[in-house]
Amino acid sequence: MDMDNTLLELFSGSDEIESLPRGAVIFAEDDTAAEMFALLEGEVEVFAQGRVLQTLSAGSLFGEMGLIDAQPRSAGCRAASDCRLVRISAKQFSFLVQHMPAFAVLTLRGVSARLRGMLDRELPA
């Protein structure tokens, strides 16, 4: 399943599409998580404690951890370029996970890819 195409199919008609300029903060570390996001176009930087941890590209889901564990945001995110994204509320997330198993799998793949990417950078070769 191609994540980019699946996200575009799921959210291209959404009323929640937002355009953000480069540098716009989407959320900050320690914010309360009330939504997650699907990145349709552009790039988003994930940052914590003043350093960039990862750059996400179009087709990525992000911000889901706070919805899953009801904890404050462990990292912040900002637009690394002009971007378009979809805001997915906690209620929408719950509905999508329950009624669209493919969305749940996409979400898990995204979390897994970010974790592996961070481990690859942190562990010595």
Rank of each mutant, 00 (worst) to 15 (best):
D2T: 10
N5A: 12
N5L: 10
N5C: 01
T6A: 14
L7D: 03
L8E: 12
E9V: 08
E9N: 02
F11T: 10
S12C: 09
S12E: 09
G13W: 05
G13P: 03
G13M: 09
S14P: 00
S14E: 00
D15N: 09
I17F: 07
I17M: 06
E18T: 11
E18V: 10
E18Y: 02
P21R: 13
P21F: 05
P21W: 00
G23C: 10
A24H: 15
V25I: 15
I26H: 04
F27I: 01
F27H: 07
E29P: 01
D30K: 13
D30C: 05
A34P: 00
E35S: 12
M36L: 15
M36H: 10
F37A: 05
L39D: 07
L40P: 03
L40V: 08
E41R: 14
E41Y: 08
E41Q: 11
G42V: 09
G42D: 11
E43K: 14
E43N: 10
V44A: 14
V44T: 08
E45D: 13
V46P: 03
A48P: 01
A48C: 09
Q49V: 07
Q49C: 07
Q49K: 15
G50H: 04
R51A: 15
L53P: 04
Q54A: 15
Q54C: 11
Q54V: 11
Q54I: 07
T55V: 13
T55I: 11
L56K: 06
L56T: 05
L56R: 04
S57H: 13
S57V: 11
S57A: 10
A58F: 02
A58I: 00
A58H: 01
A58G: 10
A58Q: 01
S60W: 02
L61D: 03
L61P: 01
F62A: 09
G63R: 04
E64G: 05
E64V: 09
L67D: 03
L67G: 07
I68M: 14
D69Q: 00
D69R: 01
P72E: 00
A75H: 03
G76P: 08
R78L: 09
R78S: 09
A79Q: 03
A79K: 02
D82M: 02
R84N: 05
R84A: 04
L85Q: 08
V86A: 08
R87P: 02
I88W: 06
S89N: 12
S89M: 09
K91A: 15
Q92T: 12
Q92H: 12
F95Y: 15
L96A: 06
L96Y: 06
V97Q: 05
V97F: 00
Q98N: 13
Q98G: 10
P101A: 05
P101R: 06
A102S: 12
A102V: 09
A102F: 01
L106R: 01
L106A: 13
L106N: 08
L106H: 07
L108N: 01
R109D: 13
S112N: 03
L115M: 14
R116F: 08
L119G: 00
L119Q: 08
D120Q: 14
R121N: 11
R121E: 07
E122D: 13
L123W: 06
L123S: 06
L123P: 02
A125W: 10
A125N: 12
A125D: 10
